[in-house]
Protein backbone atom coordinates (compact mmCIF):
# COMPACT_ATOMS: atom_id res chain seq x y z
CA UNK A 1 0.00 0.00 0.00
CA UNK A 2 1.39 3.37 -0.95
CA UNK A 3 2.11 6.07 1.56
CA UNK A 4 -0.66 8.29 0.22
CA UNK A 5 -3.23 5.55 0.42
CA UNK A 6 -2.18 4.75 3.95
CA UNK A 7 -2.63 8.37 5.05
CA UNK A 8 -6.04 8.40 3.41
CA UNK A 9 -7.21 5.37 5.41
CA UNK A 10 -5.96 6.87 8.62
CA UNK A 11 -7.88 10.09 7.86
CA UNK A 12 -11.02 8.03 7.20
CA UNK A 13 -10.51 6.13 10.45
CA UNK A 14 -10.08 9.32 12.44
CA UNK A 15 -13.24 10.74 10.83
CA UNK A 16 -15.19 7.68 12.02
CA UNK A 17 -13.71 8.05 15.50
CA UNK A 18 -14.80 11.69 15.68
CA UNK A 19 -18.25 10.80 14.41
CA UNK A 20 -18.69 8.12 17.09
CA UNK A 21 -17.16 9.92 20.05
CA UNK A 22 -18.11 13.54 19.51
CA UNK A 23 -21.53 13.51 21.26
CA UNK A 24 -20.00 11.49 24.11
CA UNK A 25 -17.19 14.00 24.50
CA UNK A 26 -19.80 16.75 24.49
CA UNK A 27 -21.91 15.24 27.26
CA UNK A 28 -18.76 14.68 29.35
CA UNK A 29 -17.86 18.32 28.76
CA UNK A 30 -21.35 19.50 29.82
CA UNK A 31 -21.12 17.40 32.96
CA UNK A 32 -17.91 19.24 33.92
CA UNK A 33 -19.41 22.71 33.51
CA UNK A 34 -20.38 24.76 36.55
CA UNK A 35 -23.99 26.04 36.53
CA UNK A 36 -22.82 29.56 35.64
CA UNK A 37 -20.70 28.17 32.83
CA UNK A 38 -23.46 26.14 31.12
CA UNK A 39 -24.48 28.93 28.80
CA UNK A 40 -20.97 29.91 27.70
CA UNK A 41 -21.83 28.85 24.15
CA UNK A 42 -18.60 26.87 23.92
CA UNK A 43 -17.92 23.17 23.61
CA UNK A 44 -15.51 23.04 26.54
CA UNK A 45 -16.07 24.32 30.08
CA UNK A 46 -14.18 27.47 31.08
CA UNK A 47 -13.21 25.77 34.34
CA UNK A 48 -13.81 22.07 34.90
CA UNK A 49 -15.64 21.21 38.09
CA UNK A 50 -17.05 18.06 39.63
CA UNK A 51 -19.94 19.92 41.24
CA UNK A 52 -22.52 18.07 39.11
CA UNK A 53 -21.17 14.67 40.09
CA UNK A 54 -21.27 15.66 43.73
CA UNK A 55 -24.88 16.80 43.28
CA UNK A 56 -26.08 13.41 42.02
CA UNK A 57 -23.84 11.15 44.11
CA UNK A 58 -23.82 12.83 47.50
CA UNK A 59 -25.86 16.02 47.14
CA UNK A 60 -29.53 16.92 46.88
CA UNK A 61 -30.28 14.67 43.90
CA UNK A 62 -28.73 11.49 45.25
CA UNK A 63 -32.12 10.12 46.30
CA UNK A 64 -33.25 10.44 42.71
CA UNK A 65 -30.21 8.94 41.04
CA UNK A 66 -28.73 6.24 43.25
CA UNK A 67 -31.93 4.16 43.74
CA UNK A 68 -32.49 4.36 39.98
CA UNK A 69 -28.98 3.06 39.36
CA UNK A 70 -29.60 0.14 41.73
CA UNK A 71 -32.94 -0.62 40.08
CA UNK A 72 -31.42 -0.54 36.61
CA UNK A 73 -28.60 -2.92 37.49
CA UNK A 74 -30.86 -5.33 39.37
CA UNK A 75 -33.70 -5.43 36.88
CA UNK A 76 -31.49 -5.62 33.80
CA UNK A 77 -29.24 -8.35 35.23
CA UNK A 78 -32.20 -10.50 36.31
CA UNK A 79 -34.01 -10.04 32.99
CA UNK A 80 -30.79 -10.89 31.12
CA UNK A 81 -30.18 -13.98 33.23
CA UNK A 82 -33.72 -15.30 32.77
CA UNK A 83 -33.75 -14.76 29.04
CA UNK A 84 -30.30 -16.30 28.59
CA UNK A 85 -31.35 -19.37 30.53
CA UNK A 86 -34.55 -19.81 28.52
CA UNK A 87 -32.74 -19.04 25.27
CA UNK A 88 -29.99 -21.53 26.04
CA UNK A 89 -32.40 -24.47 26.02
CA UNK A 90 -34.27 -23.14 23.01
CA UNK A 91 -31.09 -22.44 21.04
CA UNK A 92 -29.70 -25.88 21.85
CA UNK A 93 -32.89 -27.46 20.51
CA UNK A 94 -32.84 -25.27 17.41
CA UNK A 95 -29.19 -25.87 16.63
CA UNK A 96 -28.95 -29.50 17.55
CA UNK A 97 -32.27 -31.26 17.16
CA UNK A 98 -34.49 -31.83 14.19
CA UNK A 99 -38.07 -31.07 15.05
CA UNK A 100 -40.97 -29.35 13.35
CA UNK A 101 -41.61 -25.95 14.87
CA UNK A 102 -38.03 -24.70 14.68
CA UNK A 103 -39.01 -22.19 12.06
CA UNK A 104 -42.10 -21.21 14.06
CA UNK A 105 -39.98 -20.43 17.11
CA UNK A 106 -37.49 -18.36 15.15
CA UNK A 107 -40.23 -16.42 13.34
CA UNK A 108 -42.02 -15.81 16.63
CA UNK A 109 -38.78 -14.40 18.04
CA UNK A 110 -38.56 -12.13 15.02
CA UNK A 111 -42.14 -10.90 15.39
CA UNK A 112 -41.61 -10.25 19.10
CA UNK A 113 -38.40 -8.36 18.31
CA UNK A 114 -40.17 -5.90 16.00
CA UNK A 115 -43.23 -5.58 18.25
CA UNK A 116 -43.97 -1.95 19.13
CA UNK A 117 -43.18 -1.67 22.83
CA UNK A 118 -45.92 0.88 23.43
CA UNK A 119 -48.55 -1.68 22.36
CA UNK A 120 -47.42 -3.89 25.23
CA UNK A 121 -47.25 -1.04 27.72
CA UNK A 122 -50.82 0.16 27.30
CA UNK A 123 -52.55 -3.00 28.55
CA UNK A 124 -49.85 -3.82 31.10
CA UNK A 125 -50.24 -0.40 32.70
CA UNK A 126 -53.83 -1.26 33.57
CA UNK A 127 -53.34 -4.94 34.44
CA UNK A 128 -50.23 -4.31 36.58
CA UNK A 129 -52.20 -1.81 38.66
CA UNK A 130 -54.91 -4.37 39.28
CA UNK A 131 -52.62 -7.23 40.28
CA UNK A 132 -50.09 -5.17 42.21
CA UNK A 133 -47.12 -5.45 39.87
CA UNK A 134 -47.12 -1.74 39.08
CA UNK A 135 -43.93 -0.03 40.30
CA UNK A 136 -42.19 -3.28 41.33
CA UNK A 137 -39.09 -5.08 40.03
CA UNK A 138 -41.01 -8.11 38.66
CA UNK A 139 -43.36 -5.64 36.98
CA UNK A 140 -40.44 -4.52 34.83
CA UNK A 141 -38.54 -7.79 34.57
CA UNK A 142 -41.47 -9.58 32.93
CA UNK A 143 -41.98 -7.05 30.10
CA UNK A 144 -38.19 -6.73 29.70
CA UNK A 145 -38.23 -10.36 28.56
CA UNK A 146 -40.08 -9.19 25.45
CA UNK A 147 -36.96 -7.13 24.65
CA UNK A 148 -34.23 -9.55 25.65
CA UNK A 149 -35.60 -13.01 24.91
CA UNK A 150 -36.05 -12.80 21.10
CA UNK A 151 -32.57 -11.38 20.51
CA UNK A 152 -31.12 -13.99 22.87
CA UNK A 153 -32.75 -16.84 20.97
CA UNK A 154 -31.55 -15.53 17.61
CA UNK A 155 -28.03 -14.71 18.66
CA UNK A 156 -27.48 -17.84 20.68
CA UNK A 157 -28.85 -20.24 18.08
CA UNK A 158 -26.56 -18.62 15.52
CA UNK A 159 -23.62 -19.24 17.85
CA UNK A 160 -24.66 -22.79 18.76
CA UNK A 161 -25.02 -23.70 15.10
CA UNK A 162 -21.27 -23.21 14.67
CA UNK A 163 -20.29 -25.50 17.53
CA UNK A 164 -18.79 -28.78 16.34
CA UNK A 165 -21.15 -30.99 18.32
CA UNK A 166 -19.48 -34.18 17.03
CA UNK A 167 -16.68 -33.47 19.46
CA UNK A 168 -18.97 -34.55 22.26
CA UNK A 169 -19.26 -38.04 20.77
CA UNK A 170 -15.55 -38.06 19.99
CA UNK A 171 -14.79 -37.41 23.65
CA UNK A 172 -17.15 -40.19 24.68
CA UNK A 173 -15.50 -42.60 22.28
CA UNK A 174 -12.21 -41.65 23.89
CA UNK A 175 -13.61 -42.78 27.22
CA UNK A 176 -15.14 -39.65 28.73
CA UNK A 177 -18.44 -39.99 30.55
CA UNK A 178 -21.47 -38.04 29.27
CA UNK A 179 -21.04 -35.52 32.04
CA UNK A 180 -17.32 -35.12 31.40
CA UNK A 181 -17.92 -34.73 27.67
CA UNK A 182 -20.49 -32.04 28.40
CA UNK A 183 -18.38 -30.21 30.95
CA UNK A 184 -14.99 -30.45 29.30
CA UNK A 185 -16.02 -30.15 25.67
CA UNK A 186 -19.42 -28.54 25.20
CA UNK A 187 -19.41 -25.94 27.96
CA UNK A 188 -16.13 -24.30 26.87
CA UNK A 189 -17.35 -24.25 23.27
CA UNK A 190 -20.76 -22.81 24.11
CA UNK A 191 -19.74 -20.36 26.82
CA UNK A 192 -18.51 -17.54 24.56
CA UNK A 193 -21.81 -17.54 22.66
CA UNK A 194 -23.85 -17.46 25.84
CA UNK A 195 -21.68 -14.72 27.28
CA UNK A 196 -21.88 -12.54 24.16
CA UNK A 197 -25.63 -13.00 24.00
CA UNK A 198 -25.88 -11.90 27.61
CA UNK A 199 -23.97 -8.69 26.87
CA UNK A 200 -26.21 -7.81 23.94
CA UNK A 201 -29.37 -8.61 25.90
CA UNK A 202 -28.09 -6.48 28.77
CA UNK A 203 -27.49 -3.52 26.44
CA UNK A 204 -31.05 -3.75 25.20
CA UNK A 205 -32.56 -3.95 28.68
CA UNK A 206 -30.29 -1.15 29.91
CA UNK A 207 -31.54 1.06 27.07
CA UNK A 208 -35.25 0.66 27.84
CA UNK A 209 -37.15 3.86 28.42
CA UNK A 210 -40.84 3.28 27.65
CA UNK A 211 -41.42 0.48 30.17
CA UNK A 212 -39.42 2.40 32.74
CA UNK A 213 -41.47 5.58 32.59
CA UNK A 214 -44.83 3.87 32.10
CA UNK A 215 -44.79 1.07 34.65
CA UNK A 216 -43.15 2.82 37.60
CA UNK A 217 -44.07 5.82 39.70
CA UNK A 218 -41.48 5.98 42.50
CA UNK A 219 -37.87 5.07 43.09
CA UNK A 220 -39.00 1.58 44.16
CA UNK A 221 -38.42 0.34 40.63
CA UNK A 222 -37.72 3.29 38.34
CA UNK A 223 -34.64 2.58 36.20
CA UNK A 224 -32.02 5.16 35.23
CA UNK A 225 -33.20 6.18 31.74
CA UNK A 226 -36.68 6.89 33.11
CA UNK A 227 -35.26 8.76 36.11
CA UNK A 228 -33.13 10.84 33.72
CA UNK A 229 -36.08 11.59 31.48
CA UNK A 230 -38.20 12.77 34.38
CA UNK A 231 -35.37 14.49 36.25
CA UNK A 232 -36.05 18.14 36.93
CA UNK A 233 -33.44 19.06 39.52
CA UNK A 234 -33.49 19.15 43.29
CA UNK A 235 -35.49 22.36 43.25
CA UNK A 236 -37.51 23.91 40.51
CA UNK A 237 -35.24 26.94 40.26
CA UNK A 238 -32.23 24.86 39.42
CA UNK A 239 -31.23 24.14 35.87
CA UNK A 240 -31.04 20.30 35.74
CA UNK A 241 -28.75 20.22 32.69
CA UNK A 242 -25.49 19.72 34.60
CA UNK A 243 -26.69 16.91 36.91
CA UNK A 244 -28.43 15.18 33.98
CA UNK A 245 -25.20 15.24 32.01
CA UNK A 246 -23.25 13.86 34.98
CA UNK A 247 -25.79 11.05 35.46
CA UNK A 248 -25.71 10.35 31.71
CA UNK A 249 -21.94 9.96 31.86
CA UNK A 250 -22.16 7.57 34.81
CA UNK A 251 -24.70 5.28 33.11
CA UNK A 252 -22.62 5.30 29.95
CA UNK A 253 -19.50 4.04 31.73
CA UNK A 254 -20.66 0.37 32.11
CA UNK A 255 -21.58 0.03 28.43
CA UNK A 256 -18.33 1.64 27.32
CA UNK A 257 -16.34 -0.75 29.51
CA UNK A 258 -18.23 -3.75 28.09
CA UNK A 259 -17.66 -2.49 24.55
CA UNK A 260 -13.94 -1.96 25.07
CA UNK A 261 -13.45 -5.38 26.65
CA UNK A 262 -15.58 -7.47 24.34
CA UNK A 263 -15.84 -5.55 21.07
CA UNK A 264 -14.87 -8.44 18.82
CA UNK A 265 -17.44 -10.77 20.35
CA UNK A 266 -20.19 -8.16 20.36
CA UNK A 267 -19.72 -7.50 16.65
CA UNK A 268 -19.82 -11.22 15.94
CA UNK A 269 -22.98 -11.58 18.03
CA UNK A 270 -24.76 -8.67 16.41
CA UNK A 271 -24.04 -9.73 12.86
CA UNK A 272 -24.29 -13.50 13.34
CA UNK A 273 -27.84 -13.23 14.55
CA UNK A 274 -29.04 -11.09 11.68
CA UNK A 275 -26.97 -11.96 8.62
CA UNK A 276 -25.61 -15.38 7.97
CA UNK A 277 -24.85 -16.91 4.64
Amino acid sequence: MSRREKTWWIVAGVAILIYCLFPIAWIVSVSLKAPSDLTNGQFLPTNSTLVNYREILTGGSKDLFLPALRNSFGICLIATAISCLLAMFAAYAIARLDFPGKKLILSTALVVAIFPVISIVTPLFNVWRQIGLYDTWPGLIIPYLSLTLPISIWTMSAFFREIPWEMEQAAQVDGATTWQAFRKVIVPLAAPGVFTTAIIAFFIAWNDFIYGISLTSTDAARPVPAALGLFSGASQFENPTGPIAAAAVIVTIPVVVLVLLFQRRIVAGLTNGAVKG
Binding site: I24, I27, V30, F203, G229, R264, I266
Partner: peptide
Amino acid sequence: PVVRAAILIPYAVITVVSAFAWQFA
Protein backbone atom coordinates in the same frame (compact mmCIF):
# COMPACT_ATOMS: atom_id res chain seq x y z
CA PRO B 1 -9.96 -2.71 16.57
CA VAL B 2 -9.97 0.93 17.61
CA VAL B 3 -12.53 1.89 14.99
CA ARG B 4 -14.63 -1.17 15.74
CA ALA B 5 -14.76 -0.34 19.43
CA ALA B 6 -15.64 3.27 18.66
CA ILE B 7 -18.41 2.29 16.29
CA LEU B 8 -20.04 0.14 18.95
CA ILE B 9 -20.31 3.06 21.34
CA PRO B 10 -23.21 4.90 19.69
CA TYR B 11 -25.00 1.54 19.47
CA ALA B 12 -24.46 0.79 23.15
CA VAL B 13 -25.19 4.26 24.55
CA ILE B 14 -28.67 4.66 26.00
CA THR B 15 -31.01 6.42 23.56
CA VAL B 16 -32.04 8.83 26.30
CA VAL B 17 -28.41 9.84 26.86
CA SER B 18 -27.85 10.39 23.16
CA ALA B 19 -31.06 12.44 22.99
CA PHE B 20 -29.87 14.64 25.87
CA ALA B 21 -26.45 15.12 24.27
CA TRP B 22 -28.01 16.32 21.02
CA GLN B 23 -30.59 18.42 22.79
CA PHE B 24 -27.99 20.19 24.93
CA ALA B 25 -25.84 20.79 21.84
